[in-house]
Design a protein around this nucleic acid. Structure first.
Lengths: 329, 329
DNA sequence: CTGAAAGCGCTAACAC
DNA sequence: GTGTTAGCGCTTTCAG
């Protein structure tokens, strides 16, 4: 099919292109019969407004960029779903960018985003990308951060206070006398795990103790599970906290294969869980982070920034709900 | 920061905008010293070419649309990763669209895609969207289909022959005398499951039998697991084939909680598996569909269509590798 | 209520 | 080599 432009429609309907523009934008100042004529022409020619040209003329693209770590979509998936659902409501399109481990190319992503002239960018990334944020800010992009708490003139954020979550949990366990608590390090979510650790440290400190049990999976192990199976031959704990359900599961599996009973001897808790948690044995107790809502709220805030609506809270905290399952007593 | 255009750069560098255009596009016909001057100006002003304007002028966006079912990203995730990795190599950006259950809005997605003037569209959807494909074709979009086998002038596809996979598996089991075989229906992947069924039917037919064991999870059950737990009180099979690992897992869990031992009494196989399969007990035997490759190859084919390269195979079959694990003998 | 014309930022002939 | 100019398809004053 030949490209059909607003001119063709104007010709067909015997009006000027200005009028066509008016009807496709639903401006009320068009007489009924000419509107009908234009609509007929549009229909007949199969005309679809060129969003690129509109973008140029209007200086906006009704598109936002979403940046996420490539890794596993298992837990970013819900975030994306939430974001897309809200984006759909407000008619925004999404350009998807993923950051790879090799930190090098993140500059390229920012470059691409700037050139693409999207209306805003939503970033869900473990570490705060300070330099990149600065670039984006320099070019006036409204930004919404997921998972990191911070805000400026054109940056808002949506997050869950993981530190508090762990603080409360650990405090409980300490008070029950179950003080042998460890946290699994996660190279892929360094920042998030740091928050977990801070929470634990604060809880221990308040009781006049020091928290220092980090289980780090050495790089040379091809999976946490393999390492942990060794680990539990000579170690055990009262409680282990992991970031992702997959890691917590590796803990539970490795422990029980070493005769350590979960949850009797060892309790396990994770922060983020996926639908697999429902099918897995033992089902893992978790904080049930509201991933979908993180995405949905982030996009909602973005639309507010874009439409210059009043934003009363630029740092939105979403709450978790500790959900005990089979991996805790 | 004020918007800086190619004019500003031209001014700053004391050249015409044509020259600036030449240097940002790396055309060799620019003298060294003027190129340097232009580059300095670009650097000084922080100029970034406006991709929208380029898109208008060049009639191409270096962007492709990706359509996937919203559902769980657990298994589409790998496809996306594969696609993005290749897209990155060829400098294409991705606009992400998800189809929701409510079939109504898929027309809207197509509409949006047409307006967005992307260079091509990759579709991974269970059912073949015939009408939508027709629309897209009418507007001359090159299309690559993932999971569905078909091709036309501007449609290519990348898929795995699930029917053959099941045919071969079922044939083996029949020959071992284990003929009580069932397939789990999956409302979310109707088309894929249809192929599985066809494979089983063909296998049974060849042996002069009829395949007719479909386990359908009634809509009123909130999860397969809940239904299956009932189901296995009064039923059992030699082999059950499920599409996703999550369903296969529900089968294994429900069965063993009814005293049916997996794999001794009941064997379970799934088609698609995710990383969770490595952590789950029993680990599920599967066909190990190469999801990442499906995405990567799809995008590669797309670039070929876009660059008018010769395409020797417009329907690319990727192979699976049956991988026995703990859920089969 | 409708049309004419300028402009959004860039590319690509075509001159010089 | 480099500049001039005419689009790419649409929106938006400003006249009429």
């Amino acid at each position: 099919m030949k490209r059909v432009t607003i001119y063709d429609v104007a010709n067909e309907a015997k009006v000027s292109l200005a009028t066509v523009s008016r009807v496709i934008n639903g401006l009320e100042i068009v007489r009924e019969d000419t509107r009908l004529r234009v609509e007929a022409a549009i229909e007949k020619l199969g005309y679809k407004p060129n969003a690129i040209a509109q973008g140029l003329a209007l200086q906006k693209t009704t598109t936002i960029a979403l940046v996420i770590p490539e890794a596993s979509f298992t837990y970013t998936g819900q975030i994306i779903n939430g974001l897309l659902d809200v984006a759909k409501i407000y008619k925004y399109s999404i350009m998807l960018h993923t950051t790879t481990e090799g930190i090098v190319d993140i500059g390229e992503i920012v470059e691409t985003i700037i050139k693409s002239r999207v209306d805003g960018v939503v970033i869900y990334n473990d570490k705060l990308m300070v330099d990149e944020l600065a670039s984006l800010t320099k070019y006036n992009f409204p930004i919404v951060l997921i998972g990191n708490k911070m805000s400026t003139d054109n940056i808002c954020s949506v997050y869950v206070d993981l530190e508090k979550a762990v603080y409360e949990l650990v405090t409980q366990y300490i008070e029950k006398g179950r003080k042998n608590i460890a946290i699994i390090q996660d190279r892929k979510n360094k920042f998030a795990v740091e928050q977990l650790i801070k929470g634990a440290q604060r809880a221990f400190e308040r009781k006049g103790m020091v928290f220092d049990k980090f289980i780090e999976i050495p790089r040379e192990y091809r999976s946490s599970y393999v390492f942990l199976k060794d680990y539990f031959r000579t170690n055990t704990h009262d409680l282990i906290i992991a970031h992702r359900d997959s890691q917590a599961l590796a803990v539970a599996n490795a422990a029980s294969e070493n005769g350590i009973k979960v949850p009797q001897d060892l309790e396990v808790v994770c922060v983020i869980d996926t639908k697999y948690n429902a099918m897995v044995r033992p089902q893992l107790s978790s904080f049930a982070i509201p991933s979908y809502d993180l995405g949905a709220v982030a996009m909602r805030v973005m639309t507010k920034m874009l439409h210059m609506e009043e934003i009363d809270d630029r740092e939105i905290e979403l709450s978790y709900l500790f959900t005990p399952r089979q991996s805790t007593k």
